[in-house]
Structure formats: C-alpha cells, structure tokens
Amino acid sequence: MTAALQIEGLSFAYGAKKALDSIAFQVEPGECTILLGPNGAGKSTLFALITRLYDAREGRIALCGYDVKRQSLQALAKLGVVFQQTTLDPDLSVTQNLRYHAALHGIGKKDADRRIQEELERLNMYERRGEKVRQLNGGHKRRVEIARALLHRPSLLLLDEPTVGLDVPSRQAIVKHVHDLVKQQNLAVLWATHLIDEIDADDSLVVLHKGQIKASGKLAEILQSTGWADPGQVFQKLTQSDKGGPA
C-alpha cells in the first residue's frame, strides 16, 4: 500500500538557521498522526514544505507516491489543508467560499453543489450555507474549513492547529469529526497541535523538537517502550531537554 504521506531525510534552513534536520516519517491511509511540538519546533516549516510554499533542497516528500517537487500538481490534488489562520473570505457566504475552492480544483458547479451539501450536512452546517462567514463563530468557521478541505476528496488531510482559540465543545466536536473521517473514509490525517487532549488512543504520534524527530510511532507503542504514562508525559520529557528519548 502506498503511504499517503512519505517524508524521507528532509532538511530545511532559513539562511544559517536550521529549521528541520533530516526528518523522516510516514502517514498511512486510515491513520491519524498527531504532530506534537512546542512553538518553534518546525511544524509550520514542515507544513510549508508539504504544501509546497517552499521547495526542500534536501530530502523528499511524496503524497500518495507523487513527489511534491517533481509531480507537484498530482501531489497537491491529493491534499486537503486546514491552515492555522482562517482562510475563508468573511464577506462571502459559506457556499460562495466553498464554490470558489471547488472551482480551483476544477469541480463543475453541479457536482460542487452536491458535494458542498454532503460535506456541510455531515458537519450540521448545511442550513447556514447562505450566511456570510463573518457571521459565524470560530467553531463554525473551522467546520466550514474542514468541509472545504474535503470537497475535492483528498487522500491526506493536513490540519495545522485547527482548534486554537476554540471553546471546549467546539474543539471536541472537531476532534471527533476528524477521527470519524479517518475510520469511515480511510482518510490519512496529519494533525499539528500542542494540545495533548486531542490525541486518541489509536493515533500515531510524531514528536518534533528543534527541527528533529524525538519520537514517532503508534501512541501505544511509544508509551510501552518508554514506560511513560500518557502523551502529556511523552511531550514533556521529550521537549524539555535535548537529551534522552527514543527516536
């Protein structure tokens, strides 16, 4: 089976400052991988490279087998993204925002409207489709963004701290929805966060600190091999000092 996301020997530097140092991991279809790391760990740089805002000079990123640098169009077609900041147009309605995204992916209007209905209904947002995005609260905006990221049926969903600034019920709803998608649609998810309570027992974990991977694998396996009690402890132990910890 081809991995939804394959990262091999990836390094990146801003001038002399190294942001990522030879990292490697993969995300399989039907797998939710949590990318844990404190601020400045290199999460945003990694996301910028996967979404091809910059090109990596060292290493390789492949989406469903397509090299992001050499086969970028095929690779990007497989990718759905929810960025950290809201990227919806506040002056346009929910439907107008989603239709714009569908057009960028070459989806015709009829097909787009059908998919918009499907995705919004799944998130209980369909009846609010005519409202301007400005009128929605933070949680609802996030739901629309997730619906948008799924419109073109991607194989990999990238979520860059999507729950920052949301209240607890909204956060829980989004966490549950994404985990349901992984199970029901065999979607691969890479979720960057620093909120430990968003991690499910079945999830995989990649702990990034100062541009290096400090641990990666199934959460249960990491806990078993380290003897640490929970993901919080894993995060704390691996990101508070530069020593120790399995790689």
């Binding site: 979404t51 805002l53 970028s72 169009l73 990718l79 993204v81 900041q85």
Partner: peptide
C-alpha cells in the same frame, strides 16, 4: 499574511 494566498497556492495548478 492571513493565509488565503496559501489556499490559492496549494491548489493543483501551476
């Protein structure tokens, strides 16, 4: 700055 440019740049077109 707001990110919607990235939304455009990430779509599968040159």
């Amino acid at each position: 700055e707001m990110g919607s440019m990235r939304m455009l740049m990430v779509c599968p077109l040159p």
